[in-house]
Amino acid sequence: MPRIFTLLASISIALGTIAPGSAAAQAFKSTIRIVVPQAPGGGTDLVARIVAPGLSSELKQTVIVENRPGASGQVGTQLVKNAPPDGTTILLAVDHSLIIVPLTVPGVRYNVQSDFVPLGQAVRTYWTLIIPPNADYKDFKGYVAAIRKEPNARSYGVPLAGGATKAIGEAVGKYAGVGLVEVPFHGSAPLLQNVLAGQVPAGMTGMPEAIAAHRSGKARVIAVSGSARTQLLPDVPTFKELGVDGLEFRTFVGFFAPKGLPSAMAQQFNAALRKTLADPAVQQKITQLALQPAPTTLEEASREVGEMAAFWKTALASPQ
Score class of each variant (00 low, 15 high):
residue 128 T to V: 10
residue 101 V to G: 12
residue 43 G to Y: 11
residue 35 V to H: 02
residue 69 P to T: 02
residue 32 I to F: 06
residue 113 Q to L: 13
residue 38 Q to G: 04
residue 89 T to D: 10
residue 130 I to Y: 00
residue 21 G to R: 08
residue 54 G to K: 02
residue 50 I to M: 13
residue 38 Q to V: 11
residue 82 N to L: 12
residue 128 T to M: 08
residue 122 A to M: 10
residue 117 V to H: 03
residue 49 R to H: 12
residue 47 V to P: 04
residue 73 G to Q: 11
residue 103 L to H: 15
residue 64 I to M: 03
residue 79 L to T: 08
residue 53 P to D: 14
residue 45 D to W: 07
residue 36 V to N: 12
residue 103 L to C: 12
residue 51 V to K: 01
residue 111 N to E: 14
residue 29 K to M: 06
residue 117 V to M: 12
residue 26 Q to L: 15
residue 60 K to C: 01
residue 108 V to A: 07
residue 112 V to M: 14
residue 75 V to Y: 00
residue 92 L to H: 05
residue 80 V to E: 12
residue 75 V to E: 09
residue 43 G to H: 13
residue 59 L to E: 10
residue 72 S to R: 06
residue 64 I to R: 04
residue 46 L to G: 00
residue 57 S to T: 04
residue 47 V to Y: 10
residue 29 K to Y: 01
residue 99 I to A: 13
residue 29 K to F: 00
residue 41 G to S: 11
residue 56 S to E: 14
residue 89 T to I: 06
residue 20 P to F: 03
residue 110 Y to V: 00
residue 96 H to S: 08
residue 46 L to T: 09
residue 39 A to F: 02
residue 87 G to T: 07
residue 119 L to Q: 07
residue 111 N to M: 07
residue 114 S to A: 12
residue 53 P to A: 11
residue 93 A to W: 11
residue 108 V to F: 06
residue 123 V to M: 08
residue 91 L to R: 06
residue 42 G to S: 10
residue 79 L to W: 07
residue 81 K to C: 06
residue 77 T to N: 10
residue 60 K to Q: 10
residue 100 I to P: 01
residue 61 Q to M: 08
residue 45 D to M: 02
residue 40 P to E: 13
residue 18 I to Y: 15
residue 84 P to R: 10
residue 67 N to W: 07
residue 28 F to T: 00
residue 90 I to A: 03
residue 70 G to Q: 02
residue 76 G to I: 08
residue 22 S to F: 13
residue 44 T to Y: 08
residue 126 Y to W: 14
residue 62 T to Q: 15
residue 109 R to G: 04
residue 84 P to I: 11
residue 47 V to A: 05
residue 74 Q to N: 08
residue 104 T to S: 15
residue 92 L to G: 01
residue 112 V to N: 11
residue 77 T to P: 11
residue 77 T to Y: 05
residue 82 N to T: 06
residue 53 P to K: 03
residue 34 I to C: 01
residue 52 A to N: 07
residue 36 V to T: 14
residue 48 A to S: 04
residue 62 T to W: 00
residue 84 P to A: 13
residue 74 Q to W: 01
residue 19 A to S: 11
residue 89 T to F: 01
residue 120 G to I: 05
residue 25 A to Q: 13
residue 118 P to V: 02
residue 72 S to H: 01
residue 97 S to M: 09
residue 52 A to D: 15
residue 129 L to V: 04
residue 20 P to M: 08
residue 87 G to Y: 04
residue 49 R to W: 04
residue 52 A to Y: 05
residue 93 A to R: 09
residue 68 R to H: 06
residue 119 L to K: 09
residue 49 R to S: 14
residue 32 I to K: 10
residue 88 T to D: 05
residue 58 E to H: 04
residue 24 A to V: 05
residue 81 K to S: 06
residue 103 L to K: 15
residue 47 V to W: 12
residue 59 L to R: 07
residue 31 T to D: 11
residue 71 A to P: 04
residue 52 A to W: 08
residue 33 R to A: 05
residue 79 L to Q: 13
residue 64 I to H: 02
residue 42 G to H: 14
residue 22 S to K: 03
residue 58 E to D: 12
residue 56 S to H: 05
residue 89 T to V: 09
residue 55 L to N: 03
residue 27 A to V: 04
residue 33 R to C: 02
residue 70 G to N: 02
residue 46 L to R: 09
